[in-house]
Simulated scan of single mutants.
Amino acid sequence: MKITVVAVSAPALYQLNRYRQEFQQRYGENRMELSMFYVAGANPGVLGLQDKIKEAVKTADAVVIDIMGASEALQDVVREGLAACRGQRIVIGNGCREYIRLGAFSMEGMKKQSSAPAEAERPGPQEKKTKKNAAALMHTMRRMALMMGSVAPFGMMKDMKNVFLLIDYW
């Protein structure tokens, strides 16, 4: 299994490195390939690894991305890799959130489900709805996913719950 992590969090990468060492001691070195990239700041070393980061993200079975605060150039590189990635994609924070996919849950699937006919196309009287801000909608969706995902033994709600738990504990 190939796992790629691109993050601005040094403590998280340190813990993952310790986990990799323990995993390799227990199960052998060829069972898991863990590529980690520390991308805080816009230092020349990170910018020189753009092609390597993009290729590692593209070819991974599972990707964890935490690039909040990273440079725009780096975010674009990661975005290109995520667009081509066919594995599981966990995105922490707002950057590249549209690429989240874990099991049956994906942001692309959520977008397809939520696309409803425009107001003018709906039959019946037109009522003006109050719009919630994005944070309130995300909080409501998170609560629903945590409740329903605890009941459902499998499926999209369970995967959606797992995405929110992974984001919470990162």
Rank of each mutant, 00 (worst) to 15 (best):
D66I: 00
L47T: 01
A83T: 06
F23E: 14
G95L: 07
I3Q: 09
P153A: 01
Y38I: 02
V8M: 04
V57R: 03
M32K: 04
V39G: 01
V39R: 02
S150N: 12
M156I: 07
L13A: 03
E119I: 12
G28R: 04
A70L: 06
Y99E: 12
M144C: 01
T59V: 01
D51M: 02
G48E: 14
D51C: 00
F37L: 12
V163Y: 04
G124Y: 06
D76I: 08
R26Q: 15
I67E: 10
S71T: 14
E98S: 04
Q15F: 14
A73I: 15
D76C: 04
R20N: 10
K131Q: 08
L102S: 00
E98Q: 13
A135P: 00
N43Y: 12
I167P: 04
Y169G: 09
D159N: 13
V77L: 07
R20D: 15
A12G: 08
S114M: 12
V57H: 02
F105C: 03
M144N: 05
V91T: 02
Q24T: 09
F23Y: 14
A73Q: 15
V57G: 02
M141Y: 02
Y27W: 15
G87S: 07
V8W: 06
A42E: 15
M1R: 08
V63M: 01
R143E: 15
C96T: 02
M68I: 05
I100Q: 05
A62I: 11
A70D: 05
Q113N: 06
E29N: 15
K111E: 10
G124F: 05
D168K: 12
F37M: 12
A118R: 13
N162A: 04
P123D: 06
D168E: 15
K2I: 13
M141W: 08
V6K: 05
E22T: 04
M1K: 11
R89K: 15
D61W: 00
T4D: 04
I100P: 00
N133L: 07
P117V: 01
A42Y: 13
A104E: 15
F154V: 00
E22F: 10
G124N: 03
R122Q: 15
A10E: 13
Q21S: 08
P11T: 08
A62S: 06
Q113E: 15
V151K: 07
R18D: 10
A10N: 02
V64F: 15
E22M: 13
A40M: 10
I167C: 14
V163C: 03
L34S: 05
M148W: 03
T130G: 01
K112Y: 03
Q88Y: 09
N30F: 10
E108G: 02
L165E: 14
N17L: 09
K132D: 11
N43K: 12
V39E: 09
G41K: 03
L74V: 03
Q126F: 07
E29P: 09
E33K: 11
Y38D: 11
A118I: 05
K129H: 08
G28K: 02
Y27Q: 09
N43H: 12
D61K: 01
Q15W: 12
K2S: 12
T130N: 04
M156G: 00
N94E: 14
Q21H: 08
A84K: 14
Y14L: 08
F37K: 11
E33R: 13
